[in-house]
Design a protein around this nucleic acid. Structure first.
Lengths: 258, 258
DNA sequence: CCCTGTCGTTAAACTATGTTACCGTTGGGT
DNA sequence: ACCCAACGGTAACATAGTTTAACGACAGGG
């Protein structure tokens, strides 16, 4: 608990190619497409934990690829309540939702140190005009994110605290293992209980209680920024988790591949 | 279903052009684009209330434009719970979210009689290849839907029953009045309390209580399939409603227009 | 015509979750 | 070395929301 001499850090498999990797999941890339994508990531910035990458209501013409580390998007209501909308993992775009708007609709903040690759919004328009195949993939990715959001709506609307939390951890586990960022049944989880509470729409206290219950049931432990699934089947059924919506095999292919 | 003699029906301003109208909000259309869109709606079908247009887990290569009437999308959990994900209004696409997947992720069912225009999924791909400007607009529309979903996440995660219900009615009012389907402060609301409950993530009983409270506070009445806002400012502040996210003026333009 | 099912409505008892309050540990700043 | 802020943890109490159950209105079907 203390000296953490061993603090085993899980590799963040970033490499210079996370964007290409992401698109490759959906389609085979031509050389032209490949070098276009590579060009988007030529710029790279390190930011430290807590940095706000995107500010609600502010205008920016930058988009980012999250290359390593975690971030989360949140909104603040007038009464001060904060709602975490989603966790962003390596390979995700930051601000792509805002690119259709004149100003950002939510904050995005790094949770733990991150590497991000900024590029100007206008480059998206190049895609529409010059790379119809990439556009199709982009639409697919955007749809996929919508589907994840819908699942979150179900989570908040229809599940109780216990199911909800189990579901969130399953979602994260699946998303991380899709890009090999898990370490067997464990994964890095750089999220405080209070952020977790705001993601689940629960109070801090109840979040803590629920976490404790998951631990006592032998389903999952979280400590020291590390989450470990102790009983996968148990967790899956506690969450009523359907992996379906996250499964790339269920994605329809438009252009070559899969 | 049959005689319904007087039942004041509010006009559903459909016309043959709801799709074109929708795209025109985002960009000026060329003749080619216009006739392509018109072609998508050449087919037209009437369906009666309760018909399931899209079935969870089933495959279809049809997409639809909802030309008149309301529909809603929902999911069913293993324990039988139903979560309504969104209400679909005239001019909306049905199934566009599924078009990236091999099979549908949720049901879509008509609430009240509807007219829909089916067209094959493949026509979407034509858009990517042949109409980059339409593609950009499509991305914008998809982003917009995501933003609405995010607002729904906030609603379910951070607001209590009263705020939540007020917010939903404000959202619907705004969306309807954007396409002139309101009648002053009133609008058609063909939704039973139990569907409403499943949309808000509340029990039927509490939904009824909350509706009663809104009525007693003089904010909103719902009866006989008709919702009437009695006190707009009151409703807005009860909902902590920010019209921002629904406002087309906040959309960034890529290609001509606005 | 009655019978049955759906819908809105309300009351009372119960329970999941929120609130407030407090404690110990850790780590960074001065 | 100190202090302070952030964080995890827990208990006792307060309340929003659920569950069950019951009633009337209404509509459709035989």
């Amino acid at each position: 608990m203390l000296g953490k001499p061993v603090k085993k850090e899980i590799m963040e498999t970033d490499g210079p190619d996370c964007l290409i990797g992401k698109f490759s999941c959906h389609q085979d890339l031509t050389d032209g497409e490949r070098s276009f994508l590579q060009d988007l990531q030529k710029d790279e910035r390190s930011i430290e934990g807590g940095t706000e990458v995107i500010q609600q209501d502010e205008t920016s013409d930058q988009l980012y690829v999250l290359k390593s580390g975690w971030a989360y998007a949140y909104k603040v209501l007038r009464n001060g309540q904060r709602q975490v909308l989603e966790f962003l993992l390596p390979g995700d775009f930051l601000g792509i939702r805002e690119f259709a708007y004149n100003s950002a609709l939510n904050y995005v903040v790094a949770c733990g140190d991150c590497t991000i690759c900024p590029f100007p919004k206008e480059r998206m328009e190049e895609i529409f005009v010059q790379y119809p195949r990439l556009t199709g993939t982009l639409m697919q990715m955007s749809t996929r994110e919508q589907v994840v959001l819908m699942e979150r709506v179900v989570n908040l609307g229809s599940r109780d605290a216990h199911e909800r939390m189990a579901h969130l951890f399953m979602e994260l586990y699946m998303r991380l293992s899709a890009v090999k960022l898990n370490d067997g049944l464990a994964f890095r989880f750089p999220v405080s209980q209070s952020v977790l509470a705001d993601a689940l729409g629960l109070s801090k206290v109840h979040t803590n209680r629920t976490l404790k219950r998951l631990r006592e049931e032998g389903l999952l432990t979280v400590s020291n920024g590390l989450a470990t699934v102790q009983n996968m089947n148990g967790l899956i059924s506690a969450a009523q988790f359907e992996s379906f919506y996250l499964n790339d095999e269920n994605l329809r292919s438009y252009f070559g591949k899969k």
